[in-house]
Amino acid sequence: MATPVPPVPLASGRDAEVFALDDHRVLRRYRNFCDTASEAAAMAHAARHGYPVPEVHRAQGRELEMERLYGPTMLDASLDGLISPEESSRILAELHERLHALPGRKGSGQDRLLHMDLHPGNVVLAPRGPVVIDWTNARDGAPDLDLALTALLLALTGDSTDPPLAGLAEACLAPYVGHVKGDPTRLIDEVVTLRSDDPNLTPEEIALRPRAADLVRKAWAAQVH
């Protein structure tokens, strides 16, 4: 009998670690207990309607086994100069537009599936095109909530102490709000409140939220709609 090959670490984030199981599958394992069924259900809904997500093979407890993707994240590609901030912003806006055009999961209401963490680090530039990963925070709601969160994340990252990362995020904010089909400021205060519940935020990030929200409002006001 062949000896099982142990999973190979691929990535590590604040909440979870990702391991390669083989050439085609990865395992995302959360550090704290959670039920990945809701994340898998959101991805399955998106996939059924042709939205680009990794295929889910298994969701059990804090483990999620998925299709292994090849290619850089849009964040890494942008930092390496392979894609411009303008192009990155356009892709983010288009991914949001496609997601919010999907049929809602609750019948004929106005709510749509929201990703609630869509930023360049959660988009993989795979051979088949951009693929959206990390659906941990997915929920149903108003599309403008999704847009507001992405804009806020870009504004917050623009104040990062990492100069290349801060410069990229700052360069993405204005074109992003210019491309989106919606109003990223309408629910910005609600997003600021939602972010206050994130246990991963540092005190510095919490303190920057009001300034980041103002940056989003200014970027939106500067656009001609």
Rank of each mutant, 00 (worst) to 15 (best):
residue 2 A to I: 14
residue 3 T to D: 14
residue 4 P to E: 13
residue 14 R to V: 03
residue 14 R to S: 01
residue 14 R to F: 03
residue 15 D to L: 14
residue 20 A to K: 08
residue 22 D to G: 11
residue 24 H to C: 12
residue 32 N to A: 15
residue 36 T to V: 15
residue 38 S to C: 11
residue 43 M to F: 13
residue 45 H to D: 13
residue 47 A to C: 10
residue 48 R to V: 04
residue 53 V to I: 10
residue 53 V to P: 00
residue 56 V to P: 06
residue 57 H to N: 00
residue 57 H to P: 00
residue 65 E to Y: 04
residue 68 R to A: 14
residue 69 L to S: 07
residue 71 G to W: 00
residue 72 P to A: 01
residue 74 M to L: 12
residue 74 M to F: 04
residue 75 L to E: 05
residue 79 L to M: 12
residue 79 L to D: 09
residue 80 D to S: 14
residue 89 S to T: 02
residue 89 S to M: 09
residue 90 R to A: 04
residue 91 I to N: 09
residue 92 L to W: 01
residue 95 L to G: 10
residue 95 L to Y: 04
residue 98 R to I: 04
residue 99 L to R: 09
residue 101 A to W: 00
residue 102 L to A: 10
residue 106 K to R: 10
residue 111 D to Q: 01
residue 114 L to C: 11
residue 115 H to V: 00
residue 116 M to K: 02
residue 119 H to M: 08
residue 120 P to C: 03
residue 124 V to Q: 06
residue 124 V to Y: 00
residue 126 A to W: 05
residue 128 R to Y: 00
residue 135 W to L: 06
residue 139 R to H: 08
residue 139 R to T: 14
residue 140 D to Y: 06
residue 148 A to D: 00
residue 149 L to T: 08
residue 149 L to R: 07
residue 150 T to F: 09
residue 151 A to S: 15
residue 153 L to G: 05
residue 154 L to Q: 12
residue 154 L to N: 07
residue 162 D to R: 09
residue 162 D to W: 12
residue 163 P to F: 03
residue 170 E to S: 15
residue 174 A to Y: 05
residue 174 A to R: 04
residue 179 H to C: 10
residue 182 G to R: 01
residue 182 G to T: 02
residue 184 P to S: 09
residue 185 T to R: 04
residue 187 L to H: 14
residue 189 D to F: 03
residue 190 E to I: 02
residue 195 R to C: 11
residue 198 D to N: 12
residue 198 D to T: 07
residue 200 N to K: 06
residue 200 N to E: 11
residue 203 P to T: 06
residue 205 E to G: 00
residue 206 I to P: 03
residue 206 I to G: 01
residue 208 L to N: 12
residue 210 P to N: 05
residue 211 R to L: 13
residue 211 R to Y: 11
residue 214 D to K: 03
residue 216 V to L: 06
residue 218 K to A: 12
residue 218 K to W: 05
residue 219 A to G: 15
residue 222 A to H: 10
